[in-house]
């Protein structure tokens, strides 16, 4: 088959642990498994197109591929958020079960195809942290009036709790937090947050990340490009991405505890777990958000599929696991 030489625009910087490095890994692995037949060159966000524009660029074919998470496209295709991370949603095993065997993948591809994009899930992350707070939070009252950086569906939930959310890009968070322009931020997982130094300006670190129990990342490709590939080439990409999902999840589970040790023992960070009553109220707010979002028919369809699957899964999940 014809050689493939693609440009891939990333929505995350290539040095960012997991969020970016898993995308960089594609560059390397696809060349190895295809014996150099397929090359997908990683470009930093902004190098070809700004991060938020990757969708339109892949859709039009002005770039060949994109590295992102489906949740990025909330403003264009709300349903895609459910293929990235779901507040109070499933953890990795259950999420994969729904996606690969519960009808998720078909809907995912169908929705993307409407926009001339073919996408393959190509990375999976362990749970995120709930966020960094400058002050301790003891009740939902303490959340009210807080200014917080928050992304996606979780932001809607926080707004319902009286938090004023802002969408800041990765690098802008630190100075905003340092200056007190925001009081809190969610960003990612301990290993990533440690590198970014949030502990230098906020000392209270909250868990669990109710808004992102597991997060999918995807390799988006212009559909015409995808259709032009040979079956072997398509299989090479799918297989490489399957391996990237395995790699991302394992790596994510492996690197958090040492980061947490450093944060707690050397950086003087206080680690908190949300009390059950706050989690309950957040959950109630999330139900309201789902009702609002379900005005979008695709969102409603995907949500119903996921909910039905989860109800059935519970039969097994409650029995099969220790807790």
């Amino acid at each position: 088959a014809d050689r493939v030489r693609w440009k891939m625009a990333s929505t995350y910087g290539g040095k960012l642990t997991q969020l970016g490095t898993l995308g960089k890994r594609i560059e390397d692995r696809i060349e190895a498994v295809s014996d150099g037949n397929i090359q997908i060159k990683f470009f930093e966000p902004g190098a070809l197109v700004p991060a938020l524009e990757v969708f339109d660029a892949v859709s039009s074919g002005s770039i060949d591929a994109g590295w992102s998470t489906p949740g990025y496209w909330a403003g264009k295709v709300p349903a895609l958020q459910l293929f990235a991370a779901v507040p109070f949603g499933p953890s990795a095993g259950e999420y994969m079960a729904w996606y690969y065997f519960g009808g998720g993948q078909q809907m995912f591809e169908e929705i993307y195809h409407q926009h001339n994009i073919h996408s393959v899930q190509c990375g999976l992350l362990a749970p995120e942290a709930s966020g960094w707070f400058r002050k301790e939070i003891n009740s939902v009252e303490d959340l009210k009036g807080l200014k917080m950086r928050f992304f996606g569906l979780g932001a809607k939930v926080m707004e319902k709790m009286g938090v004023s959310t802002q969408l800041l890009a990765g690098g802008d968070i630190f100075p905003a937090l340092e200056l007190g322009t925001i009081d809190a931020t969610e960003f990612s997982m301990p290993a990533i947050d440690l590198n970014l130094g949030f502990y230098q300006v906020a000392k209270h670190y909250y868990f669990p990340g109710w808004h992102q129990q597991s997060t999918f990342f995807d390799l988006m490709m212009n559909k015409d490009n995808w259709d032009a590939l040979s079956e072997t080439q398509q299989a090479q990409i799918e297989t490489m991405c399957g391996d990237n999902v395995r790699y991302g999840l394992a790596e994510g589970e492996a690197i958090q505890f040492s980061a947490l040790k450093v944060l707690q023992e050397e950086k003087g960070v206080t680690i908190h777990r949300w009390p059950p009553e706050i989690l309950e109220q957040l959950h109630a707010a999330w139900e309201e958000v789902v009702a609002e979002q379900s005005q979008d028919p695709d969102f409603k369809r995907v949500w119903e599929s996921l909910s039905a699957f989860r109800a059935d899964y519970k039969i097994w999940g409650d029995l099969g696991y220790l807790d």
């Binding site: 339109d56 039009s60 264009k76 295709v77 992304f151």
Partner: peptide, 15 residues
């Protein structure tokens, strides 16, 4: 046109 056909809104769902 792409934006119009997608009924695109702010990526920050609160925008």
């Amino acid at each position: 046109l792409r934006s119009y056909e997608n009924h695109e809104v702010s990526a920050a769902l609160t925008g």
